[in-house]
């Protein structure tokens, strides 16, 4: 991603319930930005809109000078890998088959996997530590293993922009930290990452920037320390957040 992702006047409503309201923001290339906000603030909806898997919103989301809804689907998927929040697997596909789906946008419906595709699949599985599960039926995986499988699919996609909806959910603390390390590594390589997260402690330690959503509005964005300590965050969560002298975060209701 060479140009920033630009969100302009993004709005979405279901009947008269406003889910996203006048969202304007830029996501610079190489940034790792956490989307934070209380339940129902619109985090998932925002990521769905940006990934163009949500339909019926107004405004614009511009990627490389073109609205995401105008990109042909495979070309968009080559530029942006999206991890949906709900990841049901109802069919007995193998882990490797599932990860290989990340290469579909590069191959279309027909072309067989090339060496470069196999390498991308292999290194994504190794990075997510699921190579030993490759032949397992994905319906038999634990929640965390499945989560890592889907993340590996996103990595195999090789897109410069990653949109991850709750990537940490369902992972144990070891795998959470491992994933955060991987994401930081990817950002250092120049990938742009927008991820939603509930665990504010982990977010504060690992994200550089944050967008704060409150009832469909983007009320604050900037370095995550400032966002979390802001009055807007206090309004959104009803929680007072401050950084103690030893650097750790303190949370208090009120």
């Amino acid at each position: 991603m060479k140009q920033p992702l630009v969100l302009d006047d993004l709005r979405f409503a279901v009947r008269d319930k406003i889910l996203l309201d006048d969202i304007r923001a830029e996501l610079p290339p190489g940034s790792m930005t956490a989307v934070v906000g209380p339940n129902g603030a619109g985090k998932s909806t925002l990521l769905k809109a940006i990934s163009a898997t949500l339909h019926g919103w107004t405004g614009s989301v511009t990627l490389e000078g073109r609205d995401v809804r105008k990109w042909p689907r495979p070309e968009l998927a080559c530029r942006m890998a999206y991890l949906p929040q709900f990841r049901p697997v109802a069919v007995p596909l193998s882990v490797e088959d599932l990860v290989a789906m990340g290469r579909f946008p590069h191959l279309g419906a027909w072309k067989p996997l090339r060496k470069s595709d196999r390498d991308a699949i292999e290194s994504a599985m190794e990075r997510m530590e699921i190579a030993y599960l490759r032949d397992r039926d994905a319906t038999t995986l634990s929640g965390g293993e499945l989560q890592r499988t889907f993340l590996a699919r996103c990595l195999a996609q090789g897109s410069p922009l990653l949109l991850l909806d709750e990537p940490l959910t369902g992972l144990d603390i070891g795998h959470q930290l491992a994933l955060l390390e991987i994401l930081e590594g990817l950002a250092a390589e120049g990938k742009t990452i927008l991820w939603s997260v509930h665990d504010l402690r982990l977010a504060a330690e690992h994200a550089r920037d944050a967008w704060l959503l409150d009832r469909g509005r983007l009320t604050r964005r900037g370095p995550i320390d400032e966002v979390l300590a802001s009055p807007e965050a206090r309004t959104a969560f009803g929680v007072e957040m401050r950084r103690a002298d030893d650097g750790s975060w303190r949370f208090a209701r009120g």
Binding site: K48, S51, A52, T53, R73, A77, A81, Y82, L83, P84, F86, R87, P88, V89, A90, V91, L93, L98, M101, G102, F104, P105, R153, Q157
Partner: peptide
């Protein structure tokens, strides 16, 4: 695996 997943790939 679902329509949003399919669109994502």
């Amino acid at each position: 695996l679902g329509e949003d997943h399919a669109e994502a790939v």
